[in-house]
Simulated assay, not measured.
Amino acid sequence: MKPTIQSWNKQAEFVENASHELRTPLTIIQNKLELMLTTPHEKIANKFENIALSLSETRRLSKLTTDLLTLARADSSETQLEKKVVHVDSFVKRVCSPYIEIAESQEKHFWLNLNSTHTINADETRLHQLLVILLDNALKYTSEHDSIGVKTYEEDHKVILEISDTGIGIKEKNIPFIFDRFYREDKARTRESGGIGLGLSIAKWIVSAHDGSIKVSSNENGGTTFKIKLPM
């Protein structure tokens, strides 16, 4: 009976958190639209700021609902992986290509050290999503002149992917919780950067669905490294 109660409590907490996250952008959009309706004859150029903010919150809402749907399907085992042969280094290089340009535009150093010669059976779409989540985080929490790197190699019949950065890092006391849904180390900072605390939960699910593992090592103000192991 106890596991059932724990499962119910966990589900109730998830619904409560999801409702809160959905309510925030909806409230902002509603307020901005109502404000614009109070001045119907005003030129559209004068409403640009309200329109831009509403559009930004709409995009955030769209991403949130997509993430929630991904986790809901994962919980119900509805999502089926479409595995195929993936050449790890070629795939990683392709995914990282636009991030190299973004990093350069932000005066950050992006490096690749690709040393895997094997292929893996993986869902390429989900693997792409995994890397995007980790690379987005690396860009968010690094500053000018910081470094972001991706490394691949092989160890104990597994392919290893390491995504590291020299950014602000994670407090040691918070590391055990970073894969929890809706967990945010600094809620104010994370919301400002567009985060909602679901990305790493999705990342962990993707890795687990591939019979792999993901671990993080980090020091506050000393950077972060995510280490992913995937079976060959």
Results as ranks from 00 to 15, higher is better:
Val88Phe: 08
Glu104Ile: 12
Leu134Gln: 10
Asp123Gly: 04
Ser77Asn: 13
Glu57Tyr: 02
Thr38Ile: 09
Lys140Gly: 00
Ile102Met: 08
Ser76Ala: 10
Lys108Asp: 02
Thr38Ala: 12
Leu114Asn: 02
Met36Trp: 02
Leu69Glu: 08
Val92His: 15
Asn50His: 01
Leu69Tyr: 08
Ser62Pro: 03
Arg94Gln: 14
His87Arg: 12
Leu131His: 10
Ile44Trp: 08
Ser77Thr: 00
Thr142Ala: 15
Ser56Asp: 05
Arg60Trp: 05
Ile51Asp: 04
Leu35Pro: 00
Ala45His: 08
Ile120Asn: 15
Ser90Tyr: 03
Met36Pro: 00
Ile120Asp: 10
Glu78Ser: 07
Leu71Asn: 05
Leu131Phe: 14
Leu53Asn: 01
Ala74Pro: 04
Leu131Pro: 06
Val92Ile: 15
Thr38Glu: 15
Gln80Ala: 07
Glu101Val: 04
Leu112Phe: 12
Leu112Asn: 11
Lys43Asp: 02
Ile120Ala: 15
Lys140Gln: 06
Thr119Tyr: 09
Thr119Ser: 15
Ile133Pro: 06
Tyr141Phe: 14
Arg94Pro: 06
Ser77Val: 00
Thr38Tyr: 13
His118Trp: 02
Gln129Val: 04
Leu71Cys: 10
Ala45Met: 12
Asn50Gly: 02
Ile133Cys: 12
Thr70Val: 09
Thr58Phe: 06
Glu144Phe: 11
Leu68Ile: 01
Ser56Glu: 05
Leu37Asp: 03
Lys43Ser: 08
Arg94Ile: 12
Leu131Ser: 07
Leu112Ser: 08
Thr65Leu: 08
Leu69Gln: 11
Arg94Thr: 13
Val85Glu: 11
Tyr99Ile: 00
His41Thr: 00
Leu127Cys: 09
Ser76Cys: 03
Asp123Pro: 01
Glu57Ser: 03
His145Lys: 13
Ile44Glu: 09
Ser77Trp: 14
Thr119Pro: 02
Ser76Gln: 08
Val95Lys: 10
Thr79Glu: 04
Thr66Glu: 11
Leu127Met: 14
Asn121Cys: 08
Leu53Trp: 01
His145Phe: 07
Leu71Met: 13
Asn115Tyr: 03
Glu42Ser: 06
Lys108Arg: 11
Leu71Tyr: 13
Asn50Asp: 03
Lys43Pro: 03
Asn115Pro: 03
Glu144His: 09
Lys108Pro: 02
Leu61Val: 04
Ser62Asp: 06
Asn121Thr: 10
Lys84His: 07
Thr65Val: 07
Thr38Met: 14
Lys140Ile: 00
Lys63Pro: 00
Lys84Gln: 08
Ser90Leu: 08
Asp75Thr: 04
Lys108Gly: 02
Cys96Met: 14
Thr125Asn: 10
Ser105Trp: 07
Thr66Val: 03
Cys96Asp: 11
Leu61Thr: 03
Asp136Cys: 06
Thr39Asp: 11
His87Glu: 11
Ile133Arg: 12
Lys84Pro: 00
Leu71Trp: 11
Asp67Gly: 03
Ser90Cys: 04
Asp89Trp: 04
Ala52Pro: 01
Lys83Cys: 06
Ile100Arg: 15
Lys84Glu: 05
Phe91Lys: 11
